[in-house]
Simulated scan of single mutants.
Amino acid sequence: MTNETINLYVDDLRDCPDGYIVARNIQEAIHYMEKFKVHILSLDHDLGEDYDGNLLPTGYDLVKIHL
């Protein structure tokens, strides 16, 4: 982990606001959280479905796993 601090925006569809780095899924979010210190974490609850129509892990799942 570096000492660099980021604001992380986890959302599968919406445009990323200025001042944030976007993660489109939980795997990307975990990557950033392991590499950087996160100052602000913005989470979308519904992160879409896989190819079979199963719901993908949500922002809430990320919190339960990694915080």
Rank of each mutant, 00 (worst) to 15 (best):
G48K: 10
D50Q: 10
D44T: 01
I21R: 15
G48T: 10
Y60I: 13
I65L: 15
H66K: 15
L67H: 09
P17K: 08
L56N: 14
T5D: 03
G59P: 12
K35L: 11
L55N: 13
S42P: 01
T58Q: 02
M1W: 02
N7V: 05
V38P: 01
A23F: 04
K35Q: 13
L62I: 05
T58P: 02
V10M: 07
Y20Q: 08
L62R: 01
L47D: 07
K35S: 08
I40F: 06
L13K: 07
D15V: 05
D52C: 10
V22W: 07
V38D: 00
G53D: 01
D46H: 12
D44H: 02
N54M: 02
N25F: 06
N7C: 08
G19E: 09
I40G: 00
L47P: 06
Y32C: 03
H31Q: 03
L55R: 14
D61M: 01
N54A: 02
V38H: 01
E4R: 13
H31V: 00
K37V: 07
S42T: 10
L55H: 14
G53N: 09
E4D: 09
T2A: 06
E28M: 12
N7I: 05
Q27D: 14
L13A: 04
I65R: 15
Y51I: 13
D61F: 00
L8G: 04
D52H: 11
Y51S: 13
D50S: 11
I26D: 04
D11I: 03
I6D: 06
R24H: 13
E4F: 03
L67F: 15
H45N: 12
V22K: 14
S42H: 10
I30G: 00
Q27F: 08
L43Y: 09
F36M: 00
N7D: 07
C16Y: 05
L41N: 11
L13H: 06
L62H: 01
L67M: 15
L13D: 09
D15M: 08
D15F: 05
K35P: 03
T5I: 07
T5F: 03
D15N: 13
I65Q: 15
Y9K: 07
P57V: 10
E49K: 13
Y20H: 13
M33R: 03
H31F: 14
G19Q: 10
H45A: 02
I6L: 08
D46M: 10
L8D: 07
T58Y: 00
L47C: 06
P57C: 08
E28D: 13
Q27E: 14
I30S: 00
R24F: 05
D11M: 05
T58H: 01
K64N: 14
D18E: 15
D50T: 10
V63W: 08
I21G: 03
N25M: 10
M33I: 14
L62P: 02
E28R: 11
Y20S: 04
A29P: 09
K37G: 11
C16P: 06
L55T: 08
A23C: 07
E49R: 13
D18S: 11
L67Y: 14
T58D: 11
F36Q: 00
D18P: 01
G59M: 08
L13P: 01
